[in-house]
Design a binder for these strands. Structure first.
Length: 376
DNA sequence: GAGGCGTGGGT
DNA sequence: TACCCAAGCCT
């Protein structure tokens, strides 16, 4: 333990801790939401929920979680599943490496730990996709271990309780928060305590306009005392997403459309999508680069009209998309690696990220209005 | 430490 | 509109 780092951590007195623990847990008992992953303490169910909830809102997760649990009700069922079906179940939820890592980790638990999720902090943390927060959440919620589970909510709550100016984007700050968490956690109800902190952060101690007037621990909050709760936590601003010009091809051959699997690494890794090309914004004529890229793969495409334009923003990149129609008059007998034909409209079995689904809907709208235009 | 990695909702 | 954000992890 680093003494210097520990010295800078403001550890509250025992009286303060006992009062806050009691009030927070009482508030949680009265106000906690009924959520599908709170039905029982099945560590597998807790695990899946924690992975889905990473950087993702509760309301968004719920329907995915319900469907996922119907498809993969137990750890062994998930371990036996094909990766494609796991990714398909994750379709639209984003951060797809979460699904791959979860699948990898679950197979590891089945093979190495006899299907029982390890209770040892070192072992569980070694699983793919299980970091400090997730390990703490599973161990405390499912296994009643008094270990911290410090997420964005907890850091916000602590920043305000103790009026901390540390940048919560920093790793060192999270470690500091974990030291505080170890000090204040309830040994009797560690899982409920950790969830109560997060629930308070989500429902009361919210980022923009915290509802201090209904907060169960308002009288213990240093930020409120100083009237600075809206300025906390301190967080360095994120860089704006980098813009680029992207062409999607809607390329027909008979009743089939050309699709392409994305590279194994990087953005939307391994997911299916329309053939596409990406360039720096302002550098290119939409469509031409796509034609070039496909030509390099041995596919000679004839491009038609632009079917539509759209914008799609990822956390770190902004795509300015032009969907261009085209056809492949004389396709090779065997398509290059990563390309497939799929019947128009039969995308259902493919795991398509939302950006492509949006584009396909756009094209479908265009086709419908085009047909209507011919009818009237 | 900093950047990559999705998406949708709120203001 | 243009941000900001939401139960992080990996490299």
């Amino acid at each position: 333990m680093n003494r210097k780092a520990t010295e800078s951590v403001p550890l509250p007195e025992e009286g303060w801790v006992e009062a806050v623990r009691r009030k927070l847990l009482n508030w949680y008992d009265e106000n906690k939401r009924e959520l599908p992953w709170r039905q029982n303490k099945d560590p597998y169910r807790i695990w899946v929920s924690e992975i889905m909830l990473q950087q993702t809102r509760v309301d968004t997760v719920i329907p995915y979680y319900e469907r996922f649990m119907e498809s993969f009700p137990t750890l062994n069922r998930l371990a036996e599943a094909e990766e494609e079906s796991v990714i398909k179940a994750w379709e639209g939820l984003g951060y797809y490496s979460r699904a791959r890592n979860l699948h990898t980790a679950v197979k590891e638990v089945a093979a190495t730990y006899g299907g029982e999720i390890p209770r040892d902090p070192e072992e569980i943390s070694s699983l793919k996709g299980v970091g400090n927060y997730t390990a703490g959440a599973i161990l405390s919620i499912a296994y009643d271990q008094p270990v911290p589970a410090v997420d964005g909510n907890v850091m916000r709550v602590f920043s305000r309780w103790f009026a901390l100016q540390d940048d919560v984007a920093k790793l060192s700050t999270r470690r500091k928060m974990e030291t505080i968490a170890r000090h204040v956690i309830s040994e009797e109800r560690p899982g409920d305590f950790n969830q109560a902190l997060m629930e308070l952060g989500a429902l009361v101690c919210s980022p923009l306009s915290p509802s201090c007037d209904i907060c169960p621990v308002q009288e213990h909050c240093q930020a409120r005392k100083e009237g600075v709760q809206a300025e906390l936590p301190v967080k360095k601003k994120a860089k704006p997403p980098v813009p680029s010009e992207v062409s999607f091809g809607y390329i027909r051959h008979g009743d089939r459309i050309l699709i392409q699997r994305r590279p194994k690494e990087g953005l939307l890794a391994g997911m299916w999508g329309l053939p596409s090309s990406e360039r720096k914004k302002g550098e290119v004529v939409p469509g031409e680069t796509l034609k070039q890229d496909l030509f390099d793969q041995g596919l000679e495409v004839e491009l038609g009209a632009a079917l539509g334009e759209m914008e799609h923003v990822f956390s770190h990149r902004r795509w300015w998309i032009t969907v261009v129609e085209g056809e492949l008059p004389s396709p090779p007998e065997c398509l290059p690696e990563g390309y497939e034909w799929v019947k128009e409209g039969e995308w259902d079995t493919l795991a398509l990220p939302n950006v492509y689904r949006k584009a396909l809907e756009r094209v479908a709208d265009r086709s419908r209005s085009w047909i209507q235009g011919r009818l009237f």
